[in-house]
Amino acid sequence: MVSNSNINNVKTKTIGEIFSKDPKIICRNVDVFYGEKQAIKDVSIDIASREIISFIGPSGCGKSTFLRCLNRMNDTIDTCKVKGSISLDKEDIYDEKIDVVTLRAKIGMVFQKPNPFPKSIYENVAYGPKIHGLSSSKEELDFIVENSLKDSGLWEEVKDRLQSPGTGLSGGQQQRLCIARAIAVSPEIILMDEPCSALDPIATAKIEELINQLGKNYSIVIVTHSMQQAARISQRTAYFHLGELIEVGETKKIFTMPKDKQTEAYISGRIG
């Protein structure tokens, strides 16, 4: 358990408001190393309940590395070492007692490239609830699948072909299937790593609209290279550079009047 004391006494070089009134995730002084190389340097930030926050920054700045720390996806990399503290609802997610599989159900993830299982549309969504024991009957499982597909905006397009392979859908539909798969296990937070970078503008708009809708019930952390996407969908934006969290603040402030020169240089397309 992370104690309440000192949570807001953290020393940070980050400009802007790293704290939230209603934090779901609290990260304090997080360092990440790949072997000898330090990829994340002393990052502290809160992720609030039901907020959409974007992580932006040039390639290699550490935004995806930091995102993967939030549900311990970096555990899969042998050389990766995480220091500092990250808590979900005040519980240290790096505590040895934490069941990582359960943690990743609570903190779901959607990747850059849609990666449906080589199974039917139905099975793609039903797989998570089955292995986590979230349904006790076929009817209950059907209900979860239908609701998840409805919440991901895909139901009307696939309801007549639930047994068709998930891989047969278009790129945008596959990504929405992956989102349905993530929300089928009732997560509290959804992490998205460039979820629209492989999609056309129409599919992108559908995913963005979906993110806006999902933001009413979940906390969403999205890594994006599209500044306009960050501006369109997130309430807060965090700018990373060379492993450091440079600035975080309300999206409309970051894109109109950033406080830091590096942030301004990046968002306005200047050489930083």
Partner: peptide
């Protein structure tokens, strides 16, 4: 910070 944009036609 450099004052020029990466895309010079913007400047």
């Amino acid at each position: 910070m450099g004052n020029e944009h990466i895309l010079s036609s913007f400047d």
